[in-house]
Design a binder for these strands. Structure first.
Length: 231
DNA sequence: ATGGTCAAAGCGCAAA
DNA sequence: TTTGCGCTTTGACCAT
């Protein structure tokens, strides 16, 4: 869908994951007037010609209908749709890459350079910022969705682990000493980090290997309880 | 016919 | 009050 974007404006966004391939966009050159793409002879170039170099105040969208019949049809209610030429788009993009906002001076200069009204340049930048923001928001949304997915999965896994550990706590294992054949106190029990089973320890617990998450959870679960206080 | 894109306008808000 | 901006809507244009 978005791949068919005729202008390719969004392609230069500084958003990770977005590549810019404005080469094939054909921005502004799709003059659908049956006359084929003239890129250069776009009507918008005519539309936006400053009124004879004088005050570029009024060349506008109002003078569109008289400027070229275009369709012959006199739908004078709304001015013809402006389509920026390839070159105009390119220059605007270039400016945008340098600065996402324009000073009045820059705006004026750019407008002159592009033969557009300052207002048009301003609107273009506004729209461009909006598109950038939208794109970023979409990407953030995707990222957060992925985060949500993985966190949900992690949460499920931890819940299962908690359930298992709770089951252990409810029915504490009785481990008989291999020597005395008597039940060992809980303090003498430890969690095997590999198989995650309760085993009897003969010496101090080895600190060489980091405990598994289950073991860590177990230790934190059991920590508040005194070994002798086991019921 | 329909949906997407985009330039433009309208409106409200905030800062100067 | 002015100016600039964001947000939303409008309408033309285009591709399918």
């Amino acid at each position: 869908m978005g791949a068919t974007s005729p202008s390719g404006l969004e392609l230069t966004m500084a958003v990770p994951g977005l590549s810019s391939s404005s080469g094939s966009d054909g921005a502004g050159c799709n003059n659908g007037n049956g006359g084929g793409c003239g890129c250069g002879n776009m009507r918008d170039l005519d539309i936006n010609q400053p009124a004879s170099g004088g005050e570029e105040e009024e060349f506008p969208m109002g003078s569109v209908e008289e400027d070229e019949e275009e369709r012959g049809v006199g739908g004078p209610h709304r001015p013809k749709k402006l389509r920026l030429s390839k070159e105009q788009s390119r220059l605007l993009e270039e400016s945008f890459r340098l600065n996402h906002t324009l000073t009045p001076k820059q705006k004026e200069a750019l407008a002159i350079k592009l033969k557009l009204r300052p207002r048009q340049v301003e609107v273009w930048f506004q729209n461009r910022r909006a598109r950038t923001k939208l794109k970023q928001t979409e990407m953030e949304c995707e990222y957060l969705k992925r985060c949500f997915g993985s966190l949900t999965e992690e949460n499920r896994r931890l819940q299962r682990e908690v359930e298992e550990l709770r089951a252990m706590r409810v029915a504490p294992p009785t481990v008989l000493s291999p020597h005395t054949r008597q039940p060992l106190p809980a303090s003498a029990l430890t969690m095997c980090p590999r198989c995650e089973r309760i085993t009897a320890t003969t010496g101090p617990p080895s600190a060489s290997r980091p405990p598994s998450s289950a073991a860590a959870a177990a230790s934190s679960l059991f920590r508040p309880r005194r070994p002798s206080a086991a019921f």
